[in-house]
Amino acid sequence: MVSNIIHALFLTYAALFPIVNPLGGALIFLNVTNNCSQQMRHRLAWRVAVGGFLVLACSLFSGSYILGFFGISLPAVRIAGGLVIAAMGWKMLNSSDSPVEASPASVKSDEGALDLAFYPLTMPLTFGPGAIATAITIGSQQPDLLTDFDRAAVHDVAVIIGLLAICATVYLAYRYADELKRVLGKNGTSVLVRLSAFIVLCIGIQIIWFGIADLVQSLSH
């Protein structure tokens, strides 16, 4: 049972980490909140982490049911989410000066900054359609509570811990984003953001590919 918990926990964390990309997102977060006080950035980081956990948890446990209600298939969500992620990565990668400039408009001051905590800082800047589609995919693979309650309960606990871990990583990365930028320096920051933009683009293409493969497979059946 312990091995099952560890496996589900690391699977959840490993699947979400490259898509959420806390380190690359932290630099964009810092640019957006550049005019805010350090205390406000800490509050925003906390709200992003909490909001992200709620988004991922809802997507994981009820996303497949919501899609079924509207008659939307998971491959369609993957393709749509992949297109959004790929477009965002392409825009960041080809921005004239720095990929950070492709982020949402900077917050002017502490006043009204909390209004931006969910949109755009949580969605789609940190927990975008790719992370939501991934959470839905993980949720669709969980055991049935009615037929295998013990295994399903263990799996759900492990997945929740995995979600908490990825959100805690986001909180720490965003809270200490200024220290990260100071350590990397101007050139290191530019390289990391460019690399993050390329990874986001690749993740978007990969999600699209998985969606197309699933659609083709469903047609063959």
Rank of each mutant, 00 (worst) to 15 (best):
N187Y: 15
E101Y: 10
C36M: 12
A8Q: 12
R47H: 10
V50A: 07
I203Q: 01
F70S: 00
I207C: 06
I19F: 08
A131T: 03
G139A: 05
S218R: 11
S37N: 12
L163N: 04
P120I: 08
G112A: 05
I161W: 10
L180E: 00
V157L: 15
F149P: 06
I132A: 00
A26F: 00
I85L: 07
A133Y: 09
C202F: 05
I160A: 11
L54V: 15
A197S: 08
I72C: 07
I79E: 03
L164V: 15
R43V: 06
L54E: 05
K108A: 13
M40H: 01
F118A: 06
S220Y: 14
V159M: 09
D214H: 12
E101G: 03
N94R: 13
A8C: 14
N187G: 13
A153V: 15
L121G: 07
F127S: 07
S103M: 01
G128S: 01
S37H: 12
L116D: 03
A49G: 05
Y176G: 01
M88T: 11
Q142L: 15
A197L: 04
S98L: 03
T169F: 07
A8R: 11
L23T: 05
A165H: 07
R47M: 06
H42F: 10
A213S: 11
P18Y: 07
R194S: 04
